[in-house]
Amino acid sequence: MVGGLFIIITSQNYLKKVVGLAIFQTAVFVFFVSLAKVLDGTAPILTKMENAYSNPLPHVLILTAIVVGVATSALGLALVLQIYRNYETIEEKEIQSLELKSDKLNV
């Protein structure tokens, strides 16, 4: 989790930021799933025997969260592509210097 956050903050490359975000989110999903684990539990399938079973609700939640995460990553990647198309680079520093130049031209 911290690793993902670290990547987001430090990396200069937008693509890497998206990857970092994905790692960060996945870590949280794992955390959720771990909450659900009941010691000696089985999969929550109805059977004749009375078993201790893992709590299925967090899995469902995480399923939703994964979908959200996928959508976020997809949108992020799409934006990175668009940025690349417009700037021909996805390095933060280069883009900043480009923008500074164009600002000066306008003024």
Binding site: L21, F24, T72, L79
Partner: peptide, 9 residues
């Protein structure tokens, strides 16, 4: 993009 990253965090 910034909104996406910060918002997602």
């Amino acid at each position: 993009f910034n909104y996406l990253i910060i918002g997602a965090i």
